[in-house]
Simulated assay, not measured.
Amino acid sequence: MHASSDSPIRVLLIDSHQIVLWGLEKLIGGEFPRMEVAGLADNGADALKLARESRPDVVLLDLCLGKASSIQLIPGLLKTAGLHMIVFVGASHDRGAVDEAVFHGARGVVYKEQPTATILKAIQKVHEGELWLPRKTMGRVVTSFVQAEPAFADPVTERIVALTRKEGAIVAAFASEAGASNKRIAHTLGISEQTLRNHLTSIFGKLGIRNRFDLFMFAQLHHHRLDIAPARSRPVHP
């Protein structure tokens, strides 16, 4: 179940500490009717079960679930719940874990020491289709992606040539605005959000990628073939 423009954003809370879950439940519950709690879980098995049953819009996921890392849960949550939106909560010193979470599909990063208003804003922005990543995290992820063994082996050119002119314009738009929402990009291109989503489905299939973040990274890595300028280094949230 996904929120419409007039229904609450349904948030699944996952944390191994009951006191943290209690606090987050109070925080999200206090935002009704803008947001509501879709469920609470303190372990991976319950998290996957609740995600499948409650179909939340956003998952607020903590770094550690007891002695286990929650990072490995992200692909399962994405697959089980059909989500494209996960906010990852970690301590600021867990730089490697935060980067790994983003590589696994996390679309937002908020730190435990940040104000509660930041958590709420991150949930809102991620739900709207934007990325919520600190400047340094984004910089490290882009650098690692570009320096790594190419994820998109030849024939890359064949994939790019398969794009229509409109699809090429959409790729260029996402490349230049990493954190822009679907609504903003659709408005810029003069098309509806539904039309944009239809084009994205086609683009993902042609390029062999899974989501908007992969699209941004593909565009940065192959901007010279796409004949577009790479995005400047900048934060994707205020």
Rank of each mutant, 00 (worst) to 15 (best):
S4I: 10
S4G: 11
P8D: 03
P8H: 05
I9S: 00
V11A: 07
L12D: 03
L13M: 03
L13E: 10
I14Q: 03
S16E: 03
H17N: 14
Q18V: 11
Q18F: 12
I19V: 14
V20C: 08
L21A: 06
K26S: 09
K26D: 10
E31I: 11
E31L: 10
R34H: 12
E36F: 02
V37E: 02
L40A: 14
N43P: 04
N43D: 14
N43F: 06
N43C: 13
G44F: 05
D46P: 01
A47Y: 03
E53I: 12
R55N: 13
P56M: 01
P56A: 00
D57W: 00
V58I: 15
V58G: 07
V58N: 07
L61F: 02
K67H: 08
A68K: 11
S69D: 13
I71W: 04
L73C: 04
L73V: 05
I74H: 15
G76P: 00
L77H: 07
L78N: 03
K79R: 12
L83Y: 03
L83T: 10
H84R: 14
V87N: 08
V87L: 12
F88W: 05
G90V: 08
G90T: 11
G90I: 04
A91E: 07
D94Q: 11
R95K: 02
V98D: 00
V98P: 01
E100L: 06
F103R: 10
H104W: 06
G108R: 01
G108S: 09
E113R: 09
Q114R: 15
P115C: 07
P115A: 06
T116R: 08
T116G: 09
T118A: 04
I119E: 01
Q124C: 00
Q124W: 00
K125P: 00
E128Y: 02
L131E: 05
L133G: 10
P134D: 01
T137G: 02
M138H: 06
V141E: 00
S144G: 05
P150C: 07
P155A: 14
P155D: 09
V156E: 06
T157W: 10
T157H: 12
T157F: 14
R159Q: 09
R165A: 15
A169K: 15
A169S: 13
A169T: 13
A169C: 10
E177C: 07
G179M: 13
A180W: 06
A180H: 03
A186P: 11
T188A: 11
S192H: 10
S192F: 01
E193P: 05
T195E: 09
L196H: 04
N198R: 15
H199Y: 15
L200C: 13
L200E: 14
T201S: 12
F204G: 09
G205W: 05
G205I: 00
I209Y: 02
I209E: 09
I209K: 05
R210A: 14
R212A: 03
L215P: 02
F216K: 06
M217A: 12
Q220F: 08
L221W: 08
H223L: 01
H224V: 13
L226E: 08
I228W: 12
S233Y: 00
H237F: 10
